[in-house]
């Protein structure tokens, strides 16, 4: 049967992989092509690249990195960050991305998600949802944009359903209050979204131990787990993570 996936996330800026805490304090974590190859060799099921500068000036650099990775690493590649128009999606797919992740633009212009899915197919359109627990709303989790700086007033669960109805083929759910904290995924949020939609969801934000990855699948109902820091600095290899998850009754590709 279908295996659950481990997806290392490479935050890229100025041609380097970096990792921050709560979207701040960036640390260098290596050359993107080298990091991608290392993860592929360790058995990563997919790779996600997020362009965290999201300014247009080094967009060409990212395309070049994706081209280089795609020529050497034969597993699925998702690319996101600063995707604003259907044309951006086309360029990334042509560079070798298999899926493109759309975040802020999905909120500002939901029709772009619909247009991109209609043109390229839902299978390559991932909508990334950054959510935070809120107290002042009639719902539990609110969608944020612009790297977590702007509240939208949108209920994350309802928003997820809406994005799927427009053609999103997969959802990447990042818990803003947990990202980089290593205290575990926001499993209640992920479970609520996983139950509400038919498409696969990727849990992101907060993984700090192998047990967190297990919990993300079992408690959060995620189909894949995304993690950066626990892999970037060599705390665990992907292989170790997969073996641990398999021992805990989760079907993995070993």
């Amino acid at each position: 049967m279908l295996a659950k996936r481990i997806i290392p996330c490479l935050d890229v800026t100025a041609g380097r992989v970096v990792k921050g805490i709560n979207f701040l304090e960036l640390r260098d974590a290596g050359d993107p092509v080298e990091v991608a190859k290392r993860y592929d060799e360790q058995g990563a099921d997919e790779l996600t690249f997020l362009d965290i500068t999201a300014s247009s000036d080094n967009r060409g650099l990212l395309l070049h990195i994706i081209e280089e990775v795609a020529a050497q690493v034969f597993i699925p590649l998702t690319v996101g960050g600063g995707v604003r128009e259907v044309e951006d999606v086309r360029r990334l797919l042509n560079a070798g991305a298999d899926k493109v992740s759309i975040n802020t633009t999905a909120v500002l212009n939901p029709k772009m998600v619909q247009d991109a899915a209609a043109r390229f197919g839902s299978q390559c359109i991932v909508v990334a949802i950054d959510a935070k627990k809120v107290e002042n709303q009639p719902f539990e989790w609110e969608v944020f944009t612009h790297g977590g700086r702007k509240a939208t007033g949108l209920d994350a669960v309802k928003w997820a359903e809406h994005m799927v109805s427009l053609g999103a083929g997969e959802l990447l759910i990042t818990s803003m209050d947990r990202d980089g904290t290593k205290i575990g995924f926001n499993n209640p949020l992920n479970r609520a979204i996983s139950n509400a939609v038919d498409v696969p969801i990727i849990a992101s934000g907060g993984a700090g131990s192998l047990q967190h990855l297990v919990d993300g699948i079992k408690l959060g109902g995620a189909d894949a787990v995304l993690a950066a820091s626990i892999f970037h600095y060599g705390e665990y290899t992907i292989q170790e993570a997969k073996e641990f998850m398999q021992k805990n009754g989760i079907e993995m590709r070993l």
Partner: peptide, 22 residues
Amino acid sequence: AAADMHDEHGEKLKVPHMGWNQ
């Protein structure tokens, strides 16, 4: 048929069928 599909733990199986399968 997404609505009728579950794994051995009773978890809903997602469509698209996405990932590594045997």
